[in-house]
Amino acid sequence: MRTKHALWPLVNAVAALAVLASSGCGPKRPPAVIAGGAGARGGSATAGQSGAETPEPPFAGTEIQPITDETANRDDLGNVATGDEASPLADIYFEFDKSDVTDAARATLVRHATWLAAHPNTQVVIEGHCDERGTVEYNLALGDKRAQATRDQLVALGVAAARLRTASLGKERPIATGHDETAWARNRRAHFAASR
């Protein structure tokens, strides 16, 4: 091959021509090569490797489908992850990149344990959330540690483990959308999604 500079504008031109030249016949399918070297008209006879091979079709005649076995518009989060929905149990907060339950948070959890004792049929999903600083996957792991640490504290306070599930939300669903310490502090939290 010669210089790329000479080649590429021409490539663009011929690609466009190929599109214009295509006719509307046959079923919807990827383009098939109907002529290889023999299709070259004019020009030099010294064709390079003229591609006579048939291109591999993608899944012929198929289109990407939305998943239909999920009910569209169904609020199927149920008891979890709606972010800022009212909960009888207040959020607790964490320090940056930490999953330790702080003293202030522990005091809140004592009240939660009392409330849960008075509402024995309530199930809780403990959501662990993170601020936006950090990567997707590390934050999912950190949110998991926060949720688990919170659950461990509630179990230690007498709440039956079977009533508690955990779900890490990582940085995927911040309650505060700002990009400053005020927003970050609100997002480093465990949220309690309660259901009966």
Binding site: L7, L17, V19, S22, S23, G24, K28, R29, A32, V33
Partner: peptide, 25 residues
């Protein structure tokens, strides 16, 4: 589609495609 060297004029690649024009991409 024909691909050729600009300076020499030799054909490098020549192909025709067929199919529906509704999805030119």
């Amino acid at each position: 589609m024909r691909l050729f060297f600009v300076d020499g004029g030799q054909t490098m690649l020549a192909k025709q495609y067929s199919g529906k024009a509704e999805n030119p991409r």
